[in-house]
Amino acid sequence: MDWKLICKLDDIPPLGSRVVQRVSGGDIAIFRTSDDAVFALHDKCPHKGGPLSQGIVHGRKVTCPLHGWNIGLEDGQAVAPDVGSCGQFAVKVEAGEVFLAV
């Protein structure tokens, strides 16, 4: 696996996100929780493709800005009763820097 340096942890606001644009395969959303855990999901809601990166982050979930689906950051799964899943990417934080596995 190839770890790529993305940004500093502080470049992502707590309870916020950043978008990582890829040449192909679609955007990746990187989220930071209130306790500085970082998660990466495909920036595309399983419902109607909304950009999850633009949603409100709370606990270990993000709410899609288009129709309010909640997606679990840890597993990429829609919170019940909604059903759907969103691609996940491995991500790690080392010495205040965020790395994404690509």
Binding site: P13, G50, Q54, I56, P65
Partner: peptide
């Protein structure tokens, strides 16, 4: 607290269905 606002109020613009 901007992170407690819906994206429209954070981006000062209206999100549309294609993002």
């Amino acid at each position: 607290d901007p992170q407690s606002r819906f994206i429209n109020e954070r981006a000062h613009a209206n999100i549309q269905k294609d993002g």
